[in-house]
Nucleic acid binder design. Structure first.
Length: 571
RNA sequence: GGGCCAGUGGUAUAGCUUGGAUAGCAUAGGGGCUUCCGGAGCCUUAGACCCGGGUUCGAAUCCCGGCCGGCCCGCCA
């Protein structure tokens, strides 16, 4: 337990004891932090029970609590009971802990719980565009946070290699003559292949014959024709190769790729169908298709009918998704799906069906709204898109310009290496900083922001800290609180002490946007301290201040790592 | 039509789960800072809770009703 947690517990028991003295126990109250106190308890809620003015209650409580342990001061103000934490203990313990734990600072020990995070899972029919770019970034950040929370995390991409869209793509790749369409310049499979997908869609609209060919291919696919299935799989694999490259470019790597067609091939989707047919919620329409009636599962209106087979008995996407989730829970104790908001109803239906199948394990979902362009929705088919690859390129070249303008001592390669880290840092930070369900309109100048509330701002502070430590040469660690009494120093250390709570919030509560906000706060407070107190030029404070710089650098690295952002030592 | 999500300074965003002190942060705007550790910086100034009811000692936060935007409501994936 860190000193912050101990402080809160000490305050808690002190409040409980004081309330008992006033003749009341078991009252609920909230704890909050403010600029007036390290911990504040509003006493308004007590006033009814104690039949007294909140101000008076706060004052009485304050009288009954004597500073002890980590509590250095107790006071009452405006109906609040304010606690101050013993700064000397806080300073020493926080810094000692950071020095001892290093890269693991802020993490919890392993809890042995296996959690599966499914994210990205975009259809392999075209390059990833920024409309969907939230998915890998949120998913990856969540996975990294959960790892630091002590979970055994597996990440997984569910590849949709079944259905009309991939069949159209495959038809296009196999039938549209090379050279008859303009491939995109980028030498990546996803960008090359998407031209055939677009052309196939176009031909299908214009040409009856093409429509029939594709329909035939789809029929053969559904009949289990190995040649067609193999061909589709091959095309999807090629496309996926391109997507993996893009993901690697933003520091996202997934552990497992699971193919939808496998659940048809191994018969598990059919097993699901048989089990569902036997459930009390199952029904069959006149045409022969099967459905579940989910009106008892909190699903309203006309959405209660959840169809799980076609009239010819073949499975649907959702049926295979059920088989997939049953499979997932053989491998994990907990599952989290990062999904677009369009999947909300589907996800709810999936969970209800899993309940009907008797599963105790139900996946949790994390939803995000799509990123749109100022002119409207993105569409791969229509070519109205900004590709993630283009965004990365643009960010990197913008970073390159910046570096070139302020450095003349680095080689092209060195600058490019840094530019990549800075550009990607800007993109990832910018996407993860906003609440996932907030709709986002993509604007180049915002996506490429390098100032203020941005990834590069934090990277810059990290580089600055590295530079100071390098210049310092030798120094001895010093965590003596009497050497770190400046208000900027203690403010920074208090913030550093809260890191563990932020990691938990990001992981356990799936609030990944807490991370960038925290990183920005640490960086900003470091900059304020930097401007206010000399470090290298100070005499008796030198060791202690350098130690604080080192600890801040450690925390910044941990935050950035959790965000999947690199931390170059110079930029 | 029904359901879900969102609406906070000019712009963008946090806070809403668990109501509480002066609504936080960034950017653009005004004014300043470089004999010293990296100015991608620091200081300072001005500026916001969609509208209307309700609950409450107290509402950005909870409830009801509007308005605006997004998404969903397929034997598609």
């Amino acid at each position: 337990m860190d000193s912050r947690q101990r402080f809160e517990e000490e305050a808690d028991s002190a409040v409980r004891a004081a309330l008992e003295k006033l003749g009341s126990s078991g009252l609920k109250y909230v704890k909050e932090a403010s600029d007036k106190a390290d911990l504040a308890i509003p006493c308004f809620s007590f006033s009814k029970e104690l039949r007294a003015d909140p101000k008076a209650v706060a004052e009485k409580l304050a009288e009954h609590i004597k500073p002890s342990g980590l509590i250095s001061k107790v006071s009452a103000l405006n109906g609040y009971l304010n606690f101050m934490m013993d700064e000397a203990v806080l300073v020493r313990e926080t810094l000692d802990r950071i020095l001892a734990e290093g890269g693991a600072y802020g993490s919890s020990p392993s809890n042995g719980i296996r959690v599966n995070v499914e994210h990205t899972s975009t259809n392999p029919t075209g390059p990833i565009h920024v409309g969907r770019a939230r998915n890998p970034i949120i998913g990856d950040t969540l996975a990294r946070s959960l790892e630091r929370c002590g979970y055994d995390v597996q990440t997984e991409y569910y590849v949709n290699d079944v259905g009309k869209q991939v069949v159209i793509l495959t038809w296009g790749v196999n039938n549209v003559p090379k050279g008859s369409v303009k491939e995109e310049d980028r030498d990546k499979a996803d960008h090359k292949l998407v031209a055939y997908y677009r052309e196939a869609n176009k031909l299908m609209e214009e040409n009856e014959d093409v429509r029939e060919q594709i329909a035939e291919m789809l029929r053969r696919f559904e009949d289990g024709d190995r040649e067609v299935i193999g061909s589709v799989r091959e095309t999807a694999e090629a496309m996926l190769g391109g997507l993996k490259e893009t993901l690697a470019g933003i520091n996202v790597e997934l552990g497992t790729y699971t193919w939808e067609s496998d659940f048809i091939a191994d018969g598990s989707a059919k097993d699901v169908v048989e089990k569902l047919k036997g459930s009390e919620y199952a029904g069959q329409t006149e045409d022969g298709s099967w459905y579940l009636d989910l009106k008892d599962f909190g699903i309203q209106g006309k959405n209660t009918k959840f169809t799980f087979t076609r009239s010819d008995g073949t499975t649907l996407y959702t049926t295979r998704d059920l088989a997939y989730h049953l499979d997932k829970f053989k491998r994990a104790d907990k599952a989290i799906d990062v999904l677009g908001e369009d999947q909300k109803l589907g996800s709810k239906q999936l969970c209800s069906a899993l309940e009907i199948l008797g599963g105790k394990n139900i996946p949790e979902a994390m939803f995000y709204s799509f990123v749109s362009l100022p002119e409207g929705k993105m569409s791969t088919r229509k070519g109205v898109v900004v590709y993630l690859d283009d965004l990365i390129d643009e960010a990197v070249s913008r970073a390159m310009e910046e570096i070139r303008s302020r450095r003349n001592d680095l080689s092209e390669d060195e600058m490019m290496n840094i530019a990549r880290k800075v550009g990607v840092g800007a993109i990832r930070y910018n996407i993860v900083r906003v609440h996932p369900e907030k709709q986002l309109v993509f604007k180049w100048d915002e996506a490429l922001n390098f100032d203020g509330n941005s990834g590069p701002y934090i990277q810059y502070v990290h580089a600055r800290a590295c530079s100071m430590l390098k210049k310092a040469g030798g120094y001895e660690h010093c965590t003596d609180p009497s050497m770190l009494t400046d208000e900027y120093e203690t403010a920074l250390i208090k913030t550093l002490s809260r890191f563990g709570g932020v990691i938990k919030e990001a992981g356990e509560e799936k609030r990944v946007h807490a991370l960038p906000a925290y990183g920005h706060k640490v960086a900003a407070e470091f900059n304020q301290m930097y401007a206010a107190v000399p470090v290298l030029a100070s005499d008796e404070h030198r060791n202690a201040r350098l130690t604080l710089v080192e600890c801040t650098r450690t925390v910044l690295r941990n935050v950035l790592d959790c965000l999947g952002i690199d931390y170059p030592e110079e930029m």
